[in-house]
């Protein structure tokens, strides 16, 4: 163990009770808009499972271990309709495949962590946690790890809670999805994405991804989300390279 490591560990163990709670609270508060935005889907997922004749245990296991939004919803319908196992699993895989992008984007930061941090963070790596992981210093150092687990964990607990409400009270509640509550998730992502547009390449990535996502969705392509994202990323990356090349050429011209 290097001197730096032992110094860091000493620093961590000195992390007082108060600061620890402060970090957890900050993680929880930062995730709060997203926790609230998914209330209608959580309740829908829970109540749909019961309507499709899931037992309470099965309905609880969906948010507990599958822990997915749209994949959970679609699979519940498929299971309820007695779809073949391969169809259910393949659909789950397609809907969930965007997470490969998140893993790839965070790979260099997360692969170096000890497994006691890596496995839980991998499990908690949803759209929502990824949305809060944009900072270049995210997952670096114990404080930011606690923050990540607290924010991701609060999302897990809330998702579970909304599902439980759906399981036990779904039949007494109106269908929340017809109230236009899907606007909540859209506007939350707007509030996260727009301030992150700090230069032209990111702006191009966002526009290309947005336009493609609408076209692919209208065409009902299965991998609409992933394809639109990758095209947007390609566009942004190429604009960035073009800018850098131009800068280089300008520099050379000056010489």
């Amino acid at each position: 163990m290097s001197e730096k490591d032992s110094r860091q560990i000493k620093k961590f163990s000195n992390l007082s009770h108060k600061t620890f709670l402060g970090i957890v609270l900050k993680g929880f508060m930062d995730m709060m808009p997203l926790n609230l935005a998914v209330i209608p889907w959580g309740i829908l997922c829970g109540s749909l499972a019961i309507q499709r004749d899931f037992t309470i245990l099965e309905a609880l296991l969906m948010p507990l271990i599958v822990f997915a939004g749209s994949a959970q919803l679609v699979a519940t319908e498929l299971i309820g309709g007695n779809a073949p196992l391969a169809t259910i699993l393949f659909t789950t895989f397609i809907i969930s495949s965007r997470h490969f992008l998140y893993g790839l984007a965070l790979r260099d930061k997360l692969k170096v962590l000890p497994s006691k941090w890596r496995y839980p963070l991998g499990f908690l790596l949803t759209d929502e946690l990824f949305a809060l992981s944009g900072n270049s210093k995210s997952f670096k150092g114990k404080v930011r790890l606690i923050y990540a687990v607290a924010s991701g964990g609060s999302f897990y607990l809330c998702w579970l809670l909304w599902n439980v409400i759906g399981i036990f009270a779904g039949s007494y509640l109106p269908d929340l999805t017809t109230l236009g509550l899907d606007f909540a998730i859209a506007v939350t992502f707007i509030a996260l994405v727009i301030p992150s547009i700090k230069n032209i390449p990111i702006l191009v990535a966002v526009i290309v991804s947005g336009v493609c996502s609408v076209i692919f969705k209208l065409l009902a392509w299965e991998l609409d989300l992933v394809l639109a994202s990758i095209l947007g990323m390609c566009a942004g990356y190429n604009v960035l390279r073009y800018q850098k090349r131009n800068e280089q050429m300008n520099d050379e011209n000056k010489l």
Partner: peptide, 26 residues
């Protein structure tokens, strides 16, 4: 690749929210 992936968050999140706004009932 790292530079390419730095665009993943804005790109993926946008691909989630834009269809909700622009596509109603298919």
């Amino acid at each position: 690749m790292v530079s390419f992936l730095s665009f993943s968050a804005p790109a993926v999140l946008t691909a989630i929210w834009v269809p909700i706004i622009f596509i109603r009932e298919g």
